[in-house]
Simulated scan of single mutants.
Amino acid sequence: MSLFKSEGKLIKAVQRYPGILVLDTVTVTNIKVLREVGVPEWNIVKLLERQPRALTKKRDRFKEIVAEVKEMGFNALTMGFVMAVAFKTCIGKSTWAKRVDLCKRWGWSDDEILAAFGRFPQFIMLLDDNIEKTMDFFVNQMGCGSSTIARYPALLSLSLKKRIVPRASVIQVLLSKCLVKQLSFQQIFYSSEEVFLDKFILCQGLEADELLKLYQAKMDVV
């Protein structure tokens, strides 16, 4: 309670990971490590709420991970810092090395890999096969530069079958007919289903029916 300041937040954290109630010396020491590098108390609480297992990592390895995240350029004052620490506690050094190798095969530089991890730490937990297929679609079928995907790493977490391919198919038709221009990945792939339909399909007048059929067909086929 001295950390959470709220019974409701504590209950949610316990429901997510009951082991949080056993704050042994390892967890307490790891919290101290975060405080020593300048992590705000609020962000420590957020870490306990979202990824409590991260703080059960062996002390020496946890301290090493915190140092690695600092060396990557993460700001200890931000939530991104503790989330990067959390996700790095979930993987071994060999897994990180394999992920780096995979990204480099797609042409990402060391700086791009670190920047992608900073923007979306969860990408380190994605399956290699999913990353390969999504990168292949964007680079080899859509003609996007691999560095562009590095700037939007959250794309790699989206469903290729249910979101990326259907939406990209609609956008390709709209672009070919000069019905849209200057679109961003956020507009196309991050928007909700309702927003996408309203913004890119239902508002297209006579083209709407055909676009909707194409969209639904891609959802069913791919």
Rank of each mutant, 00 (worst) to 15 (best):
E210F: 11
L156Q: 03
C90Y: 14
I20Q: 02
M142R: 07
I171T: 01
R105Y: 09
K46P: 05
Y17F: 15
V222M: 08
W106N: 01
F123W: 09
F123A: 05
I171N: 04
V45Y: 08
L175E: 15
L212Y: 01
E36Q: 07
E71I: 09
A115Y: 10
T95M: 09
G145R: 02
E112W: 04
T29W: 10
R151V: 08
R61Q: 12
K98Y: 11
W42C: 11
M79S: 14
G38R: 00
K177W: 10
E132T: 08
S184F: 04
V170C: 00
A150L: 02
L48D: 09
A86R: 07
L55A: 06
L102T: 06
I171Y: 00
I20G: 05
R105C: 09
E194H: 09
T148M: 14
G205W: 12
Y215M: 00
K104A: 05
L202Y: 09
Q204M: 15
C203P: 07
F81Y: 03
C178S: 15
V180A: 07
V222C: 11
I113G: 05
R59L: 12
K162Q: 03
F123I: 14
A13C: 12
S191D: 12
V85S: 06
G107P: 03
A116M: 00
G143I: 02
Q141H: 08
T29F: 11
S159I: 05
A116P: 02
L174N: 03
A97V: 10
G145P: 02
G8S: 15
G143F: 02
F200T: 01
V66P: 00
M135P: 03
Q182S: 14
V173I: 10
W96G: 06
A168M: 05
V14R: 12
K104L: 04
C90W: 13
T56A: 12
L34V: 00
I11A: 13
Q15H: 12
F200L: 02
D101E: 15
V28P: 10
G118C: 01
V195F: 13
A208M: 01
Q216W: 02
G107W: 02
Q141C: 07
K32C: 07
A54K: 06
F87W: 12
L214P: 04
N30W: 04
V82F: 00
L127E: 15
